[in-house]
């Protein structure tokens, strides 16, 4: 008797589930879920600003911190859906808003980048993704940029990959120089912790001249082959074209780097008197770009 009751119960439950499934509350489509996540991404900072208690703030911060993982999970649940690539790009964007982006094999950012590289390397949407990782320092970012540059068929994406790889290598080289020049054990410890001691030391042993040469070659290639490709506006860049940006960087490398003769400056001082930087040849000059509103 007990046995029969159970069967009935199971049957009833089964019916209930079917009814719920065919009713009004259809599960949201991947696209709807993606839009909902985007809305959360846009709304959370405002909610955070309005939060009244520490408790509220803590909760909101925790939700904000989980967003990259939730975009990644959406992409992993629907790998064939067109929304997957958009969700992965959001993960990369959200994780890389810092000079020390989270790494490690379990980091959502690293995983998203790996999936983009494996499944979407030919997507026409990867240009902006290349820009997001420019200040990333990680090995996985370099691998990604090189793969996009080599395998992506769209000139707009290639142009941004070429520029971004040059910017990435340049930024990394500059940061290694700073690390070497300044005696800051805390900073070194941070680099080791975030990027891996072995990796940082491997970079410090690399042939600096060869890397600098590659950076110059890549900026040259970006300026010559992709001059008119537009750079998307980001919080760290105001747009413009690949050609303009590459030329600016080349001028820095060729004329404004340590070891180069400083280009002359001609202008007027605060009393309206004309003078030139080269007037001070023979003296040591500290040149400080300063600004006040």
């Amino acid at each position: 008797m007990r046995c029969i009751t159970r069967k009935i119960l199971v049957l009833l439950l089964g019916v209930a589930v079917v009814v719920a499934g065919s009713g009004q509350d259809k599960p949201p489509t991947p696209q709807q879920q993606y839009q909902a996540l985007l809305k959360e991404r846009d709304d959370l900072p405002d909610e955070l600003a309005k939060a009244k208690t520490d408790e509220e703030r803590k909760k909101l911060l925790s939700r904000l911190g989980k967003l990259p993982l939730r975009f990644l999970e959406l992409a992993e649940q629907h790998p064939k859906d067109p929304v997957a690539v958009d969700a992965l790009i959001q993960t990369v964007a959200l994780v890389n808003g810092t000079a020390f982006p989270a790494g490690g094999k379990d980091s959502p950012g690293r995983k998203a980048l790996a999936i983009l590289q494996r499944d979407h390397i030919k997507s026409d949407k990867l240009g902006l993704t290349c820009q997001w990782v420019v200040f990333g320092f990680h090995k996985s970012h370099e691998t990604f940029l090189r793969a996009v540059l080599e395998k992506n068929p769209h000139p707009e994406v290639q142009g941004l990959a070429c520029l971004s790889l040059a910017q990435f290598l340049n930024d990394r080289l500059n940061r290694l120089d700073v690390l070497k020049a300044q005696d800051k054990p805390d900073l070194e410890e941070r680099y080791h912790r975030v990027f891996g001691k072995d990796f940082v030391e491997e970079l410090q042993r690399q042939d600096r001249v060869a890397v600098a040469k590659e950076i110059e070659t890549l900026f040259d290639r970006a300026a010559e082959k992709y001059p008119d490709v537009k750079i998307p506006v980001t919080y760290f860049g105001s747009g413009g074209t690949v050609g303009e940006k590459a030329k600016t960087e080349l001028f820095q490398i060729r004329h404004l780097a340590v070891g180069k003769v400083a280009p002359d400056i001609e202008g007027e001082d605060q009393d309206g008197k004309k003078f030139k930087l080269s007037d001070y040849r023979g003296k040591v000059v500290l040149l400080d770009f300063w600004y006040r509103l």
């Binding site: 340590v258 180069k260 003769v261 930087l277 040591v284 000059v285 500290l286 300063w290």
Partner: peptide, 15 residues
């Protein structure tokens, strides 16, 4: 800003 350059007596950017 700030950005600093140190230029030696020969006009070469050193820092």
């Amino acid at each position: 800003t700030p950005t600093f350059y140190v230029i030696d007596h020969k006009g070469v950017i050193r820092y």
